[in-house]
Design a protein around this nucleic acid. Structure first.
Lengths: 196, 196
DNA sequence: CCTACCGATCGGTAGG
DNA sequence: CCTACCGATCGGTAGG
């Protein structure tokens, strides 16, 4: 997600997408108006349509950029020569970093994907299911090898991923602990929840 | 939440609120239309306004009914003569039951409260903060008494509550494990994540 | 509970 | 990038 983080050499379209993610995150997709987005960017609403096709295009660009990145990283971790619990820890840390550093896009992808239009909606849901199944499979391997306690793997995935998406409320909290401490606390709790 | 579960002796207004919770849960508050809600109930949109004041009244009735119930139960658990870890387990089980049995209302309260209007919004946010602080305080007591490992209590609260709200995706999953197994798996993972 | 209708706002287009 | 404007839909009201 280098493009998003650098804040330099962004095309006009990329800037629009970035601001859209912020707005969608803050107010929700349906409650975000194109006139509002335009105002943030200092133009009239009509001008946005020289760069984008529609409001819903913004949503699917955001969702699929995140999804693609996550799929790529998961595939990498999956094939590493480390044990299952170590893989789960890497996945957790990657997700935590995502919610700390790119939380607008990640949060929109997590919470607003249901407003995607077909065929993007079906495609996204399929990717999401397969993503979770891959993580569940790693957990199941860990259970077989006695690295992880005997639990229902899909339930463990559900807990992990939703717990991490809760970092959104950390961003909004008054007295935040620092990011590194947050990460280590989350890892401690979640990993010892799984470890045999 | 007996009124919600019985499905009998409900006033017209209560039926409207119940259906509104289902609709808001499914499509989100902003994407839910009053004409749509009316259709579910078999009436014209205008007729709804003989029973309710506004769409936003529906939202705050849903959110505050859940919030009141949760506050009541938390106060009960807080004062029990059991150790801190046992209190946390009871809180977790109560939240899990809520997301299994009354998930529409609970989910709306969890995810759509940001669309509350003032003064309800501020009131709700204050209640939410205080609710989480109470749970964090119980965790901190547990840490002092060496029942719970030395972690950041607000982070633990964040993990627990968000993990449980993930039960929504269990409801939508094809091959669900049964509710009791789900509960025990969640308790196992979350409690052993906390236990010293 | 209905019909009839309101003002506001929405995403988006035409044309320059 | 703008002005001007569109059809559709929104929450909600009047009056019966």
């Amino acid at each position: 997600m280098g493009k998003i983080v650098t804040n330099k050499n962004l095309t006009r379209k990329e800037v629009i997408i970035e601001k859209a993610a912020e707005l969608f995150k803050e107010k929700g997709y349906k409650a975000s108006g194109m006139r509002e987005l335009a105002e943030v960017l200092g133009v009239e609403a009509a001008s946005l349509y020289n760069h984008i096709k529609s409001k819903s295009e913004l949503l699917h660009l955001i969702c699929f950029e995140v999804a693609n990145k996550y799929n790529l990283v998961l595939d990498e971790i999956e094939h590493k020569k480390i044990n299952s619990l170590a893989k789960i820890e890497e996945i957790l840390r990657f997700h935590i970093h995502g919610m700390i550093n790119h939380y607008q896009e990640v949060y929109v992808c997590d919470r607003e994907w249901k407003y995607l239009e077909e065929p993007y909606l079906s495609n996204f849901q399929a990717q999401r299911r397969s993503y979770r199944k891959k993580i569940a499979a790693i957990i199941e391997q860990g259970i077989q090898k006695k690295e992880i306690k005997a639990i229902d793997a899909p339930t463990a995935v559900l807990i992990m991923l939703h717990a991490i998406s809760g970092i959104e409320s950390w961003h909004r909290s008054k007295q935040k602990i620092n990011a590194k401490d947050l990460e280590e606390n989350m890892i401690t709790i979640l990993i010892s929840g799984l470890k045999k």
